[in-house]
């Protein structure tokens, strides 16, 4: 099927999988038994898929591909406030925008690099934690118990809530003087000597990770829960007969069976988290603290607040290149995208 979608069968205890790519060659009974269609009909058949794809293709061109091409062109232009009105007339800047962005000794490049570092750390932590929490919850809720349905519904709420509603609420809770978090940590539990700042300074990184995990773990949970239902019960029963404990079952059955799912899930979470704009923007506003200056917001700030769309586009292009390399590398390493037909 697609690059993300043809998992290898995992280790031994895995059943044949409906999504697995079938051997692409070899005769096929169903095919042989049918009469060959006449030529015009075959032509028609050949045209049909393109017709079906046409609307999707047009929209992708209009909204994703052409704008991206324009964005790349913009990154080679000197598109400052003098030219935004007549941006076609903006002079070519060559590689100047890129040179500024990657000159890590100068402040602009340094700030970009720092923002990039913050984003990487944030992504690793956030995706890792979201996966761990989602996995833990999915495994713990694999067996039925009283209240399971209710709990599952509750766990899905953060994912269902509109991001602005949820993050605005978090920003309300994270206020230093009147927020819930300090009320609990400082006033009720007495864990800190003085109220902590969560929205400015270094701790804002912690806030960012917590809010992001809060929002994304339900997605990991949902996917993993669905995937766990595909693992045949017999495998567990057999393992129990062999005397395997819960931990061993987890290691020998659950994790290997989930491998293909995890490969997709982690990639999706990575891309979403790395490109996240909403959470930092809604939590900190347009001027985020340095320790929470995620790359999307940094680029937004570099283009909109300082009205330098050429530089902003150059940074976006660099970001895109990085994501392309990481994704391609990831797919290569995990062995996806190798087996393909079509």
């Amino acid at each position: 099927m697609t690059a993300l979608d043809t998992p290898h069968p995992p280790h031994p205890p895995h059943p044949p999988h409906p999504g697995d790519a079938a051997p692409a060659d070899g005769p096929e009974p169903g095919r042989r038994s049918r009469p060959r269609p006449r030529l015009p009909a075959r032509l028609r058949r050949a045209g049909l898929p393109y017709l079906l794809l046409l609307p999707a293709l047009l929209l992708e061109l209009l909204v994703h591909l052409v704008p991206m091409a324009v964005g790349i062109v913009m990154s080679f232009k000197e598109l400052t406030q003098q030219y935004i009105r007549t941006w076609g007339d903006a002079p070519w800047a060559g590689l100047a925008n890129f040179r500024v962005a990657v000159d890590f000794d100068a402040p602009v490049g340094e700030a970009l690099l720092r923002s990039f570092g913050v984003t990487c750390a944030f992504t690793v932590l956030s995706v890792g934690l979201a996966w761990v929490v989602g996995m833990a919850a999915a495994v713990l809720m694999q067996e039925n118990f009283r209240g399971r349905g209710l709990l599952r519904a509750l766990f899905l709420v953060p994912y269902a809530l509109p991001v602005y509603a949820a993050v605005i609420t978090w920003s309300f809770m994270l206020q230093r003087d009147n927020g819930l978090v300090n009320h609990v940590l400082h006033e009720q539990l007495g864990l800190t000597d003085s109220p902590t700042f969560w929205l400015i300074g270094d701790n804002s990184f912690v806030s960012l990770v917590v809010v992001s995990v809060w929002r994304t773990w339900p997605f990991a949970f949902l996917i993993l829960m669905a995937a766990l239902q595909n693992i045949p019960r017999e495998l567990y029963e057999a393992a129990q007969v062999d005397g395997a404990g819960i931990r061993q079952q987890l290691r020998r059955i659950t994790l290997p069976s989930l491998r293909p799912v995890n490969q997709v899930l982690v990639l999706v979470l990575f891309l979403w988290t790395f490109n996240d704009f909403n959470v930092p923007y809604l939590l900190f506003g347009k001027a985020p603290p340095e320790s929470a200056d995620l790359i999307s917001l940094h680029i937004y700030q570099s283009s909109f607040a300082t009205w330098d769309f050429g530089a902003g586009s150059a940074m976006s292009v660099l970001l895109l290149l990085f994501l392309l390399v990481v994704t391609a590398g990831y797919l290569l390493v995990t062995g996806r995208g190798r087996k393909h037909d079509g």
Binding site: T2, A3, L4, E60, V63, H64, L65, V66, P67, M68, V70, G71, M74, V268, L271, N275, F277, I295, S296, I299, Y300, S303, F309, G312, S313, S316, V317, L319, L320, L323, L324, T327
Partner: peptide, 14 residues
């Protein structure tokens, strides 16, 4: 599928 990785900020203005 690769459009999933486009940073929104890159094509907002375009």
């Amino acid at each position: 599928l690769s459009t999933q990785m486009f940073p929104g900020i890159l094509f907002l203005l375009p």
